[in-house]
Nucleic acid binder design. Structure first.
Lengths: 157, 157
DNA sequence: GCCTAACCTTGATTCATTCAAGATATTGGG
DNA sequence: CCCAATATCTTGAATGAATCAAGGTTAGGC
């Protein structure tokens, strides 16, 4: 578990200013991989405990954008989902997404290293990344097929 | 180019009622692969020429949902994009998406047939589909790097 | 310690998509 | 051929993630 100064270090290496919202968002993304923006906002505010000042939702959006642009976090967004963020970057891993409850799990590269896939015909595009999303049912949902996504979410809270 | 009765046939094979909005939407999806909902609405209304009655936006959303559920069309939604639809289904082909202008092109399966990829570790999920999105620059954007997405869109209209 | 660009806050706005309620039309059976 | 049953469509409002805008605050180089 990285410490606050580790996060400060990370920010400095990519020439981003060290601010409370940024460290808090980094910590949240490391703590809860694949969290969406709302969850990150909640985590940030819960940890701050309101005693260290508020963090606006706009700040979180801005920070996530800056961190993503800097390569410190990776933004993922499976079809039908809101944006989610994770701290594993640069290793070209992929994701399994549950069709029922939306849970996301990491999957290491299917074939080899970055880029692990080559298009059969690139249509003249300059391809720089191959993203794979596996769709299916998570262990919970495959054994309890009639639980709704909403119920699933409630169960987790 | 399929005829109207071909589309009617398609609808009947999946036990969907044949209605004017459904035939019009099917025609639009076949005519303009990867179109988003707004474009489909525009196409439907342009072809109808207003002389055959209006088609509400809600009807198009409903129809696209029904057609997708029936497997007649496929819904795709690369990160950061609105939903798009195509008529090629069941062949497990993939897509290249331009990071600059958002253009999408089809790419045949890199490895084999459905499913063309196997996760290195399925994390206990029951996987039924492997979706691949290649990211890069389309031929136009790679040679004109400073054209914005908006300008690109304008150019096409 | 000061300055300035970078950053954050507050509050409003956008827009794809969905929800709701009631009208209309398709289709199988009489 | 007509009718009932219900699937589908229309109209109009609502939702909610994400963005925009304007102004105040702060980190970090000098």
């Amino acid at each position: 578990m990285p410490s606050t100064s580790d996060y400060e270090q990370l920010l400095r290496t990519v020439a981003l200013r060290v601010t409370r919202p940024r460290v808090a968002v980094l910590r949240a993304v490391y703590a809860r991989p694949h969290a969406d923006t709302d969850s990150i906002i909640a985590t940030v505010r819960a940890e701050a405990g309101d005693h260290a000042g508020r963090v606006s939702h706009q700040a979180v959006y801005d920070v996530l954008r800056a961190l993503t642009a800097a390569g410190l976090v990776r933004r993922i967004q499976p079809a039908g989902s809101v944006a989610r963020y994770e701290s594993r970057t640069g290793d070209n891993h992929h994701h399994v997404v549950c069709r029922t409850c939306g849970t996301i799990a990491d999957v290491d590269c299917a074939v080899g290293d970055t880029p692990c896939l080559v298009a059969s015909d690139d249509r003249g595009f300059e391809i720089d990344e191959a993203e794979v999303v596996y769709w299916g049912l998570c262990p919970d949902c495959s054994t309890q097929p009639d639980r709704t996504a909403r119920q699933e979410l409630d169960r987790r809270v």
